[in-house]
Write a protein that binds this DNA or RNA. Sequence first.
DNA 1: AACTAAGACAACCGCTTTTCA
DNA 2: ATGAAAAGCGGTTGTCTTAGT
Length: 283
Amino acid sequence: MGRSPCCSKEGLNRGAWTALEDKVLASYINTHGEGKWRNLPTRAGLKRCGKSCRLRWLNYLRPDIKRGNISRDEEELIIRLHNLLGNRWSLIAGRLPGRTDNEIKNYWNTTLAKKAKPKSHSGSSKETSPAGTKFRPRKPSASASAASSQPQVIRTKATRLTRMLVPSLPLLVDDYSTTKPAFELRVPQTQSVSSVPEDAVNTEVQYQGTGAINFGCNEYEATAGDDNEDGNGDHDIPLDDGVLNDWIGDVNCDLENYGASLDLDSLAFLLHSDDWLGQENSI
DNA sequence: AACTAAGACAACCGCTTTTCA
DNA sequence: ATGAAAAGCGGTTGTCTTAGT
């Protein structure tokens, strides 16, 4: 049972890419564009899995990629973003132009995890990183891990957070016309804004691939008392009001354009604010 | 010089999510 | 509405390099 493999592994090259393979892949993508990764190896004449081709292109061959020499500013930004977002490497990478999630992940695991470790923690190297990443010692022996008396490590799953439910958004809707909030609050057209009961407004916070955060208002139930349940089976994560206020207070920018034009300069505020540094990951 | 441990990072794997017919 | 394919994501592993003894 189980999934079918992404491709037949027989007769395929594995391991490090050769310069020739890189050249073939790059020239194929430059000619035909990205996408259709599954068929790409056949069409390009590469003995590689499509997935492998995609990874190679995205992480190493793309022309806009910076390699190595992660600056001090970038390093600090990674630490701060990791504090905020946890192991969401693609989101973090989205805020560092030219950096890939794989590079940042590797850099974190090899370098920054130690620096970012809270000072109060004085445990062994088998502890987890601040956001729960297991810190794996190099090549542990099988017997050592089997004989470990540590409680069973809970491995984090690669679960993408797509939505959060923010109950009782602390925003005075009546003031919306005069005080522009840090984000747009959209209320269903059928409702008068001022008539929306405060406790009935739930706001979905949605991450998108670009790293932008969209705030939108879902349809609320008109019946009193049913203020949180949207019944769609999603795992909604209630946000602590304090955390939300921090977000709103700090990210005082036009989020509509946030993802599109983001660069390091626009994130300078992250480098100069200490108020949320060290705060436990609340999401 | 030889050996070993640790660092660094490319690549792979398995899973989830999104897209599309 | 549904299922398969494609894309994306994060964890893990393998291997080469470097530093220390």
